[in-house]
Simulated assay, not measured.
Amino acid sequence: MPQIFARSANGITRFVLWGGVCTMLLVATAGTALLRSSFLTGVGEAAAQPVPFSHKHHVGQLGIDCRYCHNGVETSNSAGLPATEICMTCHSQLYTNAAMLAPIRTSLARSQPLHWQRVNSVPDFVYFNHSIHVNKGVACETCHGAVDDMPLMARAEPLSMEWCLGCHRDPEPNLRPPQDAFLMHWNPPEDIAKIRQSLVKLLDVHPETMTDCYVCHR
């Protein structure tokens, strides 16, 4: 019976099969790296705002507390964006004719809010409550980074499901006394491990249920 395939066919078949497997692995690896890259997560990229507000100046240099502008952070699911009136509390007296503040003056004169671009956000199908986190001792800088060093606000963390679940499974490393949640560059005391263990009980933190789907998807 004549031979249908050449002797080299086996080698070619193995090459094609192994090449296909390697290609799929490379595609999967590249896809995973892309999903975690700043290109898609937006980490480190500053968003264009109607006014180039500098957290480095207002928080780092002037020492303004987060709650002054984000006044819903302790009581609401949303931290809140600053109203024009909050800006004008100071800027009705300071830099009153600065060109960069013209949108704020126009906003006040027309009674139309500024359209700030959200830098840190989660998808609409994710429920996130700021008040729960800060009142349980999760600091602003844990999720938002060192905003007092940011001339323009940029996302510091990916805020992905994987990233959030990492904290929900093991929240202790991110806990601190709630009264210190708004401090930047916080230096924990030497006995912080014991403090965090006690905070888990005192603040009623339950890691065993914090990864249930309904916690974030309601």
Rank of each mutant, 00 (worst) to 15 (best):
C216R: 01
F182R: 03
C216L: 05
E85T: 07
G20V: 04
A156G: 03
T89G: 09
R67V: 10
C87F: 12
L183R: 10
A156Y: 14
T41G: 02
P123N: 02
L202F: 14
D65W: 13
R176P: 11
W186N: 01
C90P: 12
H70W: 12
V122M: 12
H206C: 04
A9Y: 14
M100W: 13
T23A: 11
T23S: 11
P103T: 01
H70M: 01
P2H: 04
G31Y: 13
P113D: 05
I86M: 12
P178V: 01
L81S: 10
L40G: 03
F125I: 04
E208F: 08
T89Q: 14
V119D: 06
P52F: 07
G80W: 07
D170Q: 12
A154V: 01
R218C: 12
N10G: 10
M150R: 01
T23N: 08
R196L: 02
L199G: 00
T211D: 05
Y127L: 08
V21Q: 05
C90V: 00
F182A: 01
P173Q: 00
I192P: 06
R110C: 09
P173F: 02
S131V: 02
L101N: 07
V147W: 05
P171Q: 00
E172W: 10
D191S: 07
S54G: 04
A30K: 04
I86F: 14
G166V: 01
A46G: 04
P151V: 08
A154R: 10
N174Y: 15
D65M: 12
H115P: 14
H185F: 08
S37F: 06
T84D: 04
G80I: 03
L159P: 11
H185A: 03
G20Y: 08
V122Y: 11
V147M: 14
N135A: 02
I104W: 09
Q49S: 04
H168E: 03
L25G: 06
A146M: 09
H70D: 00
S107F: 05
P113Y: 09
G166K: 00
N120Y: 15
S107E: 05
A102D: 11
D148K: 10
G63Y: 08
P178S: 03
R67T: 09
A47E: 07
A30I: 04
L175N: 03
S160H: 06
A156H: 12
T89C: 09
V119M: 02
P173I: 00
F53I: 07
A139W: 11
L152D: 05
T75C: 06
G44Q: 05
K56L: 13
V126W: 15
G44D: 06
P123D: 02
V122I: 10
N174A: 14
S38M: 08
G60N: 05
N77V: 07
I195P: 02
L114A: 06
W18A: 06
Q49K: 02
T84N: 08
R110D: 15
